[in-house]
Simulated scan of single mutants.
Amino acid sequence: MKVLVTELMWEDGINELKRQGCRVDYDQELGRRRDELLELAPHYDALIVRNETQVDSVLLDAAKHAQVIGRLGVGLDNIDLKAAEVRNKPVIAAKHANATSVAEYVIAAMLDAYRPLIEADADVRKGRWDRRFFTGFELNKRTLGLVGMGEIAQRVATRAKALGMDVIGYDPFVTPYDHIVAETGVRPVETLDTLLQESDFVSVHVPLTRATKHMIHKANLPLMKRHAYIINSARGGIVQEQDLMEAVKREQVAGAYLDVLEQEPVPSDSPLAQIEAIRLSPHIAGLTDEAQSRTAMLVAREVINVLHGRESLCAVV
């Protein structure tokens, strides 16, 4: 069996594929070389991708012998699921493998917003000792608003609660008896507007769909507290970036932590990069060593299950 890996995959997973008898061709830049990928695709029994490779009907038709598509992550906006289903090609996602890492990123962002230790370190190294300027705030008793209340949001809530935060959530698909409400103490609110109005931090945890694209925009950003921050570790495009920049410039919100952007990588001349209150990171919320090892191993084993005719618990379609 031949497996083509088109983007970054931790060595653990590649070795697992080989251990199970697969021939693995690995090129972590191949997803960006579309024509070459289309030429190679017909020769493989499985494709493993991350978020840059566009798995559309053209690629799925080219990969005529592929029995399964593995996704190194949980976001599926780069994969045409309907086209895969019609062609009877199961899509495997790394269910919950990086959830803890993303949750810790959110906590790190909130701590950085209120206790900017890197800036304090730089200031001291310049010979200053401005204790009043670097007097921060406590997360204790602050309100965290979760947009979406799935697995990652649950892990964020547990950690935020441990810091003494009040946690609210907006998700029209969550019932009062779901775990995040019944067991973690998250208080659900009925509308996104209510969540934005009440929160000191707003953390986004929804997939990018037609319904969620630009769901945070110029009409509802002014509802937020002037000292509030937005944290987006989900997908670029959920927060309207131009509107966010304008809101920060007008001091309608304090700032944002954006790990995901509508255009990735972000251009060096992007206006986003010119606003200090908007902190950018290169899509790394789930990119810890532990999470990537789990992701690679999970996808490798589940792809092998499908290739051997077994069911996968991680199949999306």
Results as ranks from 00 to 15, higher is better:
Val266Ala: 15
Thr295Cys: 01
Trp10Lys: 12
Ile275Thr: 11
Ala120Asn: 08
Leu261Cys: 14
Arg115Cys: 10
Ile230Glu: 02
Gly145Val: 02
Val106Pro: 01
Pro42Ser: 12
Tyr105Arg: 13
Ile284Arg: 13
Leu38Cys: 05
Leu47His: 10
Ala211Leu: 07
Asp112Met: 15
Ala315Trp: 07
Glu302Ser: 02
Tyr170Thr: 03
Arg71Ala: 06
Asp193Pro: 11
Met245Tyr: 04
Asp259Thr: 10
Asp56Ile: 01
Leu287Ala: 13
Glu251Phe: 00
Lys18Trp: 02
Tyr114Thr: 15
Gly73Gln: 00
Tyr105Cys: 05
Gly148Gln: 09
Gly136Ala: 09
Ile231Trp: 02
Gln263Phe: 07
Gly13Val: 00
Asn15Met: 12
Glu262Ala: 10
Glu7Pro: 05
Ser270Cys: 12
Val49Thr: 05
Ile79Leu: 07
Arg159Asn: 10
His214Met: 00
Arg50Met: 04
Gly73Ser: 00
Ser203Arg: 04
Ala247Val: 10
Arg19Cys: 00
Val317Lys: 10
Thr100Pro: 04
Val248Glu: 01
Glu264Phe: 03
Ala41Phe: 01
Leu244Arg: 06
Asp193Lys: 09
Ile284Glu: 09
Ala247Arg: 06
Tyr44His: 06
Val317Tyr: 14
Val181Trp: 04
Gly236Ala: 08
Asp289Ser: 11
Arg301Tyr: 06
Thr143Ala: 09
Ile230Gln: 06
Val167Gly: 12
Ala160Ile: 11
Thr6Met: 12
Arg33Ser: 12
Cys314Tyr: 06
Gln263Glu: 12
Ile230Leu: 14
Gly236Thr: 13
Val91Met: 06
Gly150Ile: 01
Ala108Asp: 10
Val316Trp: 15
Gly286Met: 04
Lys82Cys: 06
Ala63Asp: 10
Gln28Asp: 15
Ala83Val: 01
Val253Cys: 09
Thr158Phe: 11
Gln54Pro: 00
Leu8Cys: 04
Ser270Gly: 07
Ala99Asn: 13
Glu138Phe: 08
Leu208Met: 13
Tyr105Leu: 08
Tyr105Trp: 12
Gly70Trp: 02
